[in-house]
C-alpha cells in the first residue's frame, strides 16, 4: 500500500472526528449542522486554487507546447470543477438548513455558480475538440483569459460594499479572526486535509494522463519494431524519367 495515502487516511480519522466533537457554534438556526462549513469553505478555497493552478500550467503550455502541461491543465480543471461542485452542494444544504431555502438570491451564491459554470465550460471546450493539439491550445488560451473574470467573481465581487452588504455570507469573518477558536482550528485542519487529498488526486490524475501518453508512445514503438526489417521506414521521393 502507498505509505502517503495510508498516512492521509490516518490523518482523516482525527480530523473527521474533530468536526463532530467540536462544540456547537452559536448564532445559527441549527447549531449542530453549522459544521457543514468545515467542508464548504475549504472546497470553495480549493476551487479558487485550482483556477490559478490551471492558469499557471496553461501559461507553461503556451510557452512550451508540451502535452505534459496540457495534462496538468486538464487535471486542474477537473479537480477545480469537482471542488467547486462540492462547495456548491454543501452551500446549498447549508442554505436550506440555516436560511430556510435551497437557493437564496444571494450574490455570492450566484457568483460562485458562475465560477463553477466557467470551469464546466472549460471542460466542455476540451470535450468538443477532437484534435489533441487544438484541444490543448484552446484550453490553455481559455484558462489564461478566464482567470481575470474568475478572480473578479471569487475575490473582488463578493467584497464590493453593495454586494457584501446584501449577502448572507459573512465576508471577512475568518480573516478578521471573528470565528470561535475551536471552530477555526478544525476549519484549518479540514482545509489542510482536503488540500492534501486534492493534491493526491491531482498527482494521480496527472500520472494517469502521463501513463496514457506513454502507453500510446509504447504502442507506436511496438508497431515500429514489428515492421518488415527490409522496409527502410522513411518515405522518400524517387526521380521520374522525363516525359514518363
Amino acid at each position: 500500500m502507498n505509505f502517503r495515502l495510508f498516512a492521509l487516511g490516518l490523518l482523516a480519522i482525527p480530523v473527521a472526528l474533530a468536526t463532530f466533537l467540536v462544540p456547537d457554534a452559536r448564532g445559527f438556526k441549527e447549531p449542530a449542522l453549522a459544521r457543514m462549513i468545515f467542508w464548504h469553505v475549504p472546497c470553495a478555497l480549493l476551487s479558487s486554487l485550482f483556477v490559478l493552478v490551471a492558469a499557471y500550467y496553461a501559461v507553461r503550455y503556451l510557452n512550451s507546447p508540451k502535452m505534459k502541461w496540457d495534462i496538468r491543465v486538464g487535471a486542474a480543471l477537473e479537480l477545480g470543477a469537482l471542488s467547486a461542485g462540492l462547495a456548491m452542494a454543501t452551500g446549498i444544504l447549508f442554505s436550506r438548513v440555516q436560511w430556510g431555502a435551497w437557493w437564496h438570491n444571494d450574490p455570492r451564491q450566484t457568483s460562485f455558480l458562475i465560477v463553477l459554470l466557467t470551469m464546466l465550460a472549460g471542460l466542455a471546450l476540451r470535450g468538443a475538440l477532437s484534435d489533441e493539439i487544438k484541444r490543448a491550445s484552446s484550453t490553455a488560451v481559455y484558462c489564461v483569459a478566464s482567470v481575470i473574470p474568475l478572480i473578479f467573481f471569487t475575490f473582488v465581487f463578493p467584497r464590493l460594499p453593495q454586494i457584501a452588504g446584501n449577502s448572507l455570507h459573512p465576508s471577512q469573518t475568518i480573516a478578521q479572526g471573528q470565528l470561535d477558536t475551536n471552530y477555526r482550528v478544525v476549519l484549518y485542519a479540514t482545509f489542510f486535509l482536503l488540500f492534501l487529498c486534492f493534491v493526491a488526486l491531482f498527482r494521480r490524475r496527472v500520472k494517469v494522463g502521463e501513463m496514457e501518453l506513454t502507453l500510446e508512445n509504447l504502442n507506436e514503438l511496438d508497431t515500429d519494431r514489428r515492421r518488415d526489417p527490409t522496409d527502410p521506414g522513411v518515405v522518400r521521393p524517387v526521380s521520374l524519367p522525363k516525359g514518363h
Binding site: L117, T118, A128, F153
Partner: peptide, 15 residues
C-alpha cells in the same frame, strides 16, 4: 473546429 460550436461559444463567452 469544435463540435456544437454555437452552444459552446455561448458557454465559453459566459465568464
Amino acid at each position: 473546429g469544435a463540435a456544437n460550436r454555437w452552444v459552446l461559444a455561448a458557454a465559453v463567452a459566459m465568464p
